[in-house]
Design a protein around this nucleic acid. Structure first.
Length: 582
RNA sequence: GGCUUUGUAGCUCAACUGGAUAGAGCACUUGACUACGAAUCAAGAGGUUGCAGGUUCGAGUCCUGCCAAGGUCACCA
């Protein structure tokens, strides 16, 4: 049982004893005592004041006395206004420390038996990944790891949008202008090579439109007609087209996989739109049969969602082909049938908020068994200081370039310090931690203003700042030799800096739970930063290896070790690794 | 226009979900490396939490109305 839970229980008993009022532990609000007062935890007594019919100060004092008498964990208390500040005995803290400090997974929960599926990334296959995908990938990966730390079994997945007109555009351009170019022959990463031809397509399209006249539409052009022709051939299973499609998609996947690997994200299972949309069509037909959907005169199929405050939504075109919604219906069911998840999380930008609202409502109407357990993790766009990224203006920040940049910055910083030769792996580690932390520290819902200069900062509220705290601890632990914990319990006179770390560490498991419940990595990110900050302060204020007593040394080494474990496993939830040196 | 999200220091972000005098970092000024790693620490300055009402012991947080910015309202994905 946690200390705060114990305090809640004690308060419930005290209130009952004093005023004969029944309250539940959840009604007892406990927060950390502000720095300027004595104590570690504060009980807010305002809620009981009215029923007790006493002044807040009197209620606080009365509860404080009872709690102190009834338990051995409270050393002292004081009351300021309606806040009852509790000082716990040193024994409470040293036993917590001894119990937890050997656990490398301290903070992680026991298995819950729940299985959750997380979908993220799902990029278009005609362009390389950019900054927006980086946010998506980091969020998806991090939320997955957080849910694992909450004890759930997690399956990471993505839907690959591998069919449609957009693929044909790159294919056609490559066929006409590629001259047999391959990733090997050009030295270009596969996704960048495809991107090059997608751009080429659009250039030619623009030229042809200009040649026709000011009112020309895409479909008026020869190249667009040729592309549509190619799509038809694809749907008819034309050998040559399918072969080209497979080859070029292969290049893209190779390119993506390289970027994923470097970013440290991965997937347990990929779904391909080309294979799921048929299941969607089956569901549409079933919905029609059951009268959940209806057919317009032109043959298109719709779902009326006005009873749940939404509009009518098309689920199948008049020509019988599927729309975006159709394949999402099919994908959801296939996933459920294959994995039997208790929940599905879709990591997709907030521009699709409405789409997911509709999707979830339709699945409810279809009475899919998993329909109530779906969650859209909606996140904000990533903008540059100058505004939105625009491919037309060439302001899109490429994912691979960006990683190169932050790593280069870390390399320069390492060379300036040049204390010991730091290997390349560590440099990458540090650079990527700057980038990842910069993005994950912001709550998903919010729009990010991405300043490239700030993202490569290695000081202050950054990933490397946290890594530095960890590296300092490792350095100390290396020098300390064998960890002798036996005297930890004899240390009783805590410094403020020590107490603050203890409280933070004790809160850590709750932080992970909160982050999981809210699907919010920023909660973990900011906790790690706060903990690192507390440790830096402690490191500055207290001697560790040359502590004033053996008990103090033992305690501080223990404290350092547990801090290191929390920093390491906490940052691992963000995809950030801790180096031993930097 | 309807729906929706967001407005907190010059800038980038927090605020334990209704609790104490709203906190960090960057930038700026200043101090600390002959103590375990200065990617650090300390100090200073910086605020009418978009505006106006309301709810109560108590509001950045909740309710209402405005203002501003983004998103979305396709037989695109």
């Amino acid at each position: 049982m946690t200390i705060t839970a114990k305090l809640q229980e004690l308060t419930v008993d005290a209130v009952k004893e004093l005023y004969e009022i029944e309250i539940s532990p959840q009604d007892v609000l406990i927060n950390q005592t502000r720095r300027e007062f004595e104590g570690e935890y504060s009980i807010v007594v305002f809620p009981f004041v009215k029923a007790a019919r006493r002044k807040p100060e009197d209620v606080g004092t009365a509860i404080g006395k009872v709690i102190k008498t009834n338990s051995s964990i409270v050393a002292d208390f004081n009351v300021v206004k309606g806040f009852l500040n509790i000082s716990l005995t040193s024994e409470v803290w040293t036993s917590f420390l001894k119990k937890s400090s050997q656990d490398e997974d301290y903070g992680f929960a026991f298995p819950s038996g729940r299985k959750v599926m997380v979908e993220y990334s799902s990029p278009n296959t005609n362009k390389p990944l950019h900054l927006g995908h980086i946010r998506n990938n980091l969020l998806g990966h991090s939320v997955s790891e957080i849910l694992k730390a909450c004890g759930h079994q997690v399956v990471k997945t993505q839907i690959i949008n591998d069919r449609g007109i957009h693929i044909c555009k790159s294919m056609l351009a490559w066929q006409r202008y590629g001259d047999g170019e391959t990733p090997e022959s050009s030295g270009l990463k596969g996704d960048h090579l495809i991107g090059k031809y997608y751009v080429k397509f659009n250039t030619v399209l623009k030229e042809q439109k200009a040649a026709i006249g000011p009112d020309a539409k895409d479909d008026d052009t020869e190249i667009m007609q040729a592309t549509r022709e190619m799509l038809i051939q694809w749907e008819q299973g034309d050998d040559a087209v399918l072969k080209l499609w497979k080859k070029m998609n292969g290049w893209v996947y190779d390119g993506f996989n390289e970027t994923y690997a470097r970013l440290g994200v991965e997937f347990d299972k990929n779904y391909f739109e080309s294979k799921t949309y048929l299941e969607g069509k089956t569901m549409v037909q079933a919905g029609l049969d059951k009268g959940i959907f209806y057919k317009e005169d032109d043959g298109s199929v719709w779902c009326d969602l006005e009873d749940v405050g939404l509009d009518k939504k098309i689920v199948q075109r008049s020509d019988g082909t599927s729309v975006y919604m159709t394949q999402d219906l099919g994908t959801a069911r296939l996933r459920y049938e294959e994995f039997g998840s208790d929940g599905m999380v879709y990591v997709v930008g907030n521009e699709q908020d409405y789409h997911f609202k509709v999707l979830f409502e339709i699945l409810k109407k279809l009475e899919e068994p998993y329909a109530e357990q779906l969650h859209h993790l909606s996140y904000g766009m990533v903008n540059l200081p100058e505004g939105k990224m625009k491919s037309r203006e060439g302001t899109v920040v490429d994912a691979d370039d960006l990683m190169d940049e932050v790593i280069q910055e870390a390399r320069i910083a390492a060379q300036e310090r040049s204390e010991e030769a730091v290997d390349d792996e560590n440099i990458q580690n540090v650079g990527l931690s700057a980038l990842k932390f910069f993005i994950l520290k912001v709550s998903p819902k919010k729009t990010i203003v991405f300043d490239p200069k700030a993202s490569v900062d290695l000081q202050g509220h950054t990933g490397p700042y946290i890594q530095n705290a960890y590296v300092r601890i490792q350095s100390i632990l290396r020098k300390s030799g064998m960890l002798d914990m036996s005297l930890t319990g004899e240390y009783t006179e805590f410094q403020d800096a020590e107490k603050h770390i203890l409280v933070a560490l004790h809160e850590y498991p709750r932080i992970i739970q909160a982050a999981g419940a809210a699907y919010d990595p920023a909660i973990v990110a900011n906790f790690c930063y706060d903990l690192a900050k507390l440790y830096h302060k402690f490191y500055h204020d207290c001697r560790i290896l040359t502590a004033e007593s053996d008990a103090a040394k033992s305690f501080r080494l223990n404290l350092s070790q547990l801090t290191a474990h929390a920093l390491k496993n906490g940052c691992s939830l963000l995809g950030i690794e801790m180096p031993e040196r930097m």
